[in-house]
Design a protein around this nucleic acid. Structure first.
Length: 588
DNA sequence: ACCACTCCTG
DNA sequence: CAGGAGTGGT
């Protein structure tokens, strides 16, 4: 009876089957980030062999050493210079934004439990006793050697950039410098805040947390924490560095994927999908999809029809062809798994060599949703709906999920640990990127294609170069709020248009790349058209459009809060964001 | 109280 | 896109 039932039902099912995490909470941030794993098209291998033996084999030992070393160095540094004004500096390098910082700690449980940034830091550094200093100094020397090894092992490829790792003396800085690959417009410094990214380290650190205090004087904890951050940040940098290389080096792979994917679209036209493809797709029932599959995959809408055989086929709503933009841009949505997966395995390892286990979130690659091409569609004036008889299922192109095995490739480990609510970078790193810049905004917009309701934690994870404090966080959240506003306005507008155009079945509303609606959205979030909008976004957009259509059709818009139910639905359909977005220099 | 959100306004 | 008001959830 309820018009929504047709759509919502399947949807709900989809969510529960495909994306448990998703359902965990309305907009609980955690689920996505923890349980969910970014569908990274690549990065299949969970935790098997480490690509870089040097680095991973002795990871434990090395990590430990590195950690100690870092601590030592940090101690030295703080004793020498940083000591004063410690608390202030860390709390607000620049946030004039007031005292707001004071109480809050958006803290994330995950990180270091015991240590508390607050007041402790004040005297922490000062009280580092001389005795300890001596000991530490000795350790420092010993560790320098280790550091060299670590750095070398960590970035063999970057050897050229940092020959000899001569800058060891600079401690953490040397690491930072290493990562100086490429210029990051908005990332003057992205060192701090990285801890959030690689869970394993944090985990290990936790384990050792109990031990460390022994070395540290009373206020040592503060330093410990700072150092901890340093260490994590350094490692993350290294990882990023490698990630960059791996991801960027073989651009061809992604590009090709994206291209092939789209290239197929055109011909699909009105013909029923070819048996093979169609079957493939159609047979991809929710149940078989990995938990996380979810919306991201193009399956969602398609399956709706499956779920409900009686539903008429959806017709693309496109009214105007727009030049097909991006032709060879890296596909951001998980599509098929390229053969270079192996390379990505390295990444996977790098990013997750940790308490893994958070890996299994498998991801459906299906994502490949193919855009439903709009065939000879009779373009509707309002630009969207194209009505067609029955069967025009969306043609499927060579499906993404190449082989069964690949379908369930594990995703990159989700970043489980956040920056632990340490909003301010340790004073040790004075230069941290300040506020948000246009680059951040652009990135945020692109991220919107994947997530409409990002949690602050997620944002922190994806903007490692941003110093998150209350204001920054709020600002970024506000951005997304603004993005949503625009998004929903467009949806409502087009839904009403469809209604006025006489469309009666919401399922006939599908947002295609050549639709007016898409154009508007793309223009807003992807002005330069330099990013290939993921299909998952089209799915969500279509769904949103349909929801608005239903609501308005049903006259629910008379209720002041009629949009809420829609928001609720959409808020559960966020997709995972490609790992590459975690790079502070990504969109560049 | 806080926070995040929506809605409205500039 | 930022501000501010109003709202609802904690």
């Amino acid at each position: 009876m309820d018009p929504n039932s047709g759509l919502l039902s399947p949807l709900s099912r989809a969510c529960s089957h495909l994306a448990e995490p998703c359902m965990e909470g309305e907009r609980s941030p955690a689920p996505r980030e923890q349980g969910g794993d970014p569908h990274f098209p690549w990065s299949p291998v969970p935790s098997s062999s480490f690509a870089d033996p040097d680095w991973f084999c002795d990871e434990n030992i090395q990590a430990k050493r590195a950690r100690v070393e870092t601590i030592v160095q940090g101690m030295c540094l703080s004793l020498n210079a940083l000591v004063p004004g410690n608390a202030q500096a860390r709390d607000s390098p620049y946030c004039p934004e007031k005292a707001q910082e004071r109480k809050r700690k958006q803290s994330l449980p995950t990180q270091q439990g015991p240590l508390k940034p607050g007041p402790v830091g004040d005297h922490g550094s000062r009280k580092g006793g001389p005795r300890v200093r001596e000991q530490l100094y000795q350790l420092k020397q010993q560790l320098r050697h280790l550091q060299k090894h670590i750095l070398q092992a960590a970035e063999p490829r970057d050897a050229a950039q940092d020959p000899g790792g001569s800058e060891m003396d600079k401690g953490p800085l040397s690491v930072k410098q290493r990562k100086g690959y490429g210029s990051r417009p908005w990332a003057v410094d992205s060192d701090h805040h990285h801890q959030g990214s690689r869970g394993d380290l944090s985990q290990k650190e936790k384990h050792r947390a109990s031990e460390e205090p022994r070395f540290l004087p009373c206020g040592g904890q503060d330093l410990l924490e700072i150092l901890r951050k340093e260490l994590t940040g350094a490692v993350c940098q290294a990882v990023d560095s490698v990630l960059q290389k791996v991801l960027l080096d073989p651009p061809g792979h992604l590009t090709q994927l994206g291209r092939s994917f789209q290239g197929l679209v055109p011909e699909g036209s009105s013909e029923p999908s070819p048996p093979e493809r169609g079957i493939c797709k159609d047979l991809f029932p929710f149940a078989t999809l990995p938990r996380r599959a979810q919306p991201q995959t193009g399956v969602l809408l398609r399956n709706l029809s499956l779920a409900n055989p009686l539903d008429p086929p959806r017709y693309p709503v496109s009214s105007r062809m727009i030049p097909r933009p991006y032709q060879g841009r890296p596909a951001n949505c998980p599509l098929t798994v390229p053969s270079h997966i192996q390379e990505n395995q390295i990444l996977s390892q790098l990013l997750s060599h940790g308490p893994s286990d958070h890996w299994d979130s498998s991801l459906p690659q299906d994502s490949s949703s193919q855009s439903h091409s709009s065939p000879e569609s009779a373009l509707r004036p309002w630009g969207a709906v194209k009505l067609r008889p029955s069967v025009l299922s969306q043609q499927q192109y060579p499906l993404p999920f190449t082989s069964p095995g690949l379908e369930r490739l594990p995703l990159l480990p989700s970043v489980k640990v956040e920056q632990g609510g340490l909003q301010c970078a340790p004073d040790v790193l004075p230069f941290s990127s300040e506020g948000l810049n246009p680059g951040h905004l652009k990135k945020a917009k692109l991220m919107f294609f994947f997530t409409r309701y990002p949690s602050s934690n997620l944002l922190k994870a994806y903007f490692p170069d941003v110093q998150f404090n209350r204001c920054i966080t709020s600002q970024m959240i506000k951005w997304f709020s603004n993005f949503r506003e625009f998004y929903y306005i467009q949806m409502e507008k087009f839904a009403r248009q469809a209604i006025s155009d006489g469309v009666t079945n919401p399922k006939m509303l599908v947002v295609l790349r050549d639709s007016e609606l898409f154009r508007a959205l793309n223009m807003h979030y992807n002005k330069g058209n330099d990013f290939e909008v993921p299909d998952c976004f089209l799915e969500i957009a279509s769904l949103t459009l349909q929801e608005f259509f239903r609501a308005v059709s049903a006259g629910k818009d008379s209720d002041p809060s009629w949009k809420k139910p829609i928001y609720k639905i959409i808020s559960k359909l966020d997709s995972d964001i490609p790992e590459i977005f975690k790079s502070s220099s990504y969109p560049q």
